[in-house]
Structures are given as structure tokens and as C-alpha cells.
Design a protein around this nucleic acid. Structure first.
Lengths: 78, 78
DNA sequence: TTGTGACTTGTAGTCCGTG
DNA sequence: GCACGGACTACAAGTCACA
């Protein structure tokens, strides 16, 4: 009866997507501007935020760098 | 002149590999036993530990679960 | 017990659009 | 600005034989 770490029963992709969306919005950037700033395709970023993709470590790192936070902080509360 | 834990110039794959190797060894399990426990191929785990792979979120999560730590803790100091 | 190269299959990731 | 889709290409996933 515990809920391992994070929000509800959303899967890890959805949780991750919501997390980066929240952090991106806090920067005031659009998906397109943010994606551009980290050299990532805009539609790919959108699908990650939607929880539809399973991004690999290098891209996760890229996002963390773009958000200017550590990987550990990126995964906080997940 | 010491490097405080994480940064270095190893790439993220190598850092991640070393990190999970360290944590796995702390559990006292062999690659084979640990891989088995998380339903992952032993040679695939070995190549991740060696920093030769770029694992995706689902597999990263699988490893964190197997180590019984949060993703945030898994990435601590990385 | 672990490392590695080679391989096939599935999907990560890119690029072009649309409402 | 965003969600969504089609059609691709690059590479992760997963497995094996052997060192």
C-alpha cells in the first residue's frame, strides 16, 4: 500500500514527461524554443512530454542540461 | 586538487555504468544474479556497466528498482 | 564471473506535414 | 504554441558464442 516514490500510478514515461513539461514551463520557453536550445527535434520533445516515448540516457542528460539542473534533481520525486 | 564526486570528463554512459556497478557490488550480487533478478540479459547489463550502451528510461528504471533505490538516488553525484 | 564483437529486431529519434 | 500523424533512418534492445 505504498506508492513507490512518485506520483500516482502513472508509468515512468508519463511521470517523466510531466516533470520536464513542468520544468520547461518554469523557464518560460515553448516546446520549440526549448527543443531548439538543446538541439532536439520539436516533435520528439512533444512526444516525450506526452509520455509516449522512452528516451535514452544521452537525451535525458541533454534535457537536464537544457533545464540547467542535475539528473538527480530532474528525477526528484519521481 | 580533488574532484568532488561526480563531474569528471567521463561521459554520462561511463559514469552511469560505474555508478550502477558500484551499487550492484554493494548488494553482493554478481552481474548474473542481479541481471536475473531484474529480468535483464547478463551481457546487456555488463555492457551497460562498461559504459558502452545508452540505456533508455525503462531500463534505467528497471535497474533502479532492482537496486531498490529511487532514480534520484541512482543519479546522485552524476 | 565478466568482457566483447557480431548480429537481428524493434523502436528511438528525425523530418516533413496537418488542424 | 501545441497535438498529432506518415515516412523514414539511426541506434537501443536483446541474444549468442567465445575468450
Amino acid at each position: 500500500m505504498f506508492n513507490h516514490g512518485g506520483g500516482l500510478h502513472l508509468n515512468i514515461q508519463k511521470e517523466f514527461g510531466l516533470r520536464i513539461q513542468q520544468l520547461r514551463k518554469a523557464t518560460g520557453k515553448s516546446q520549440e524554443k526549448f527543443a531548439l536550445s538543446i538541439d532536439m527535434d520539436r516533435t520528439y520533445l512533444a512526444s516525450i512530454e506526452a509520455g509516449k516515448r522512452n528516451p535514452a540516457l544521452q537525451n535525458i542528460k541533454k534535457i537536464a542540461d537544457g533545464l540547467e539542473i542535475s539528473l538527480s534533481d530532474l528525477f526528484r520525486d519521481l
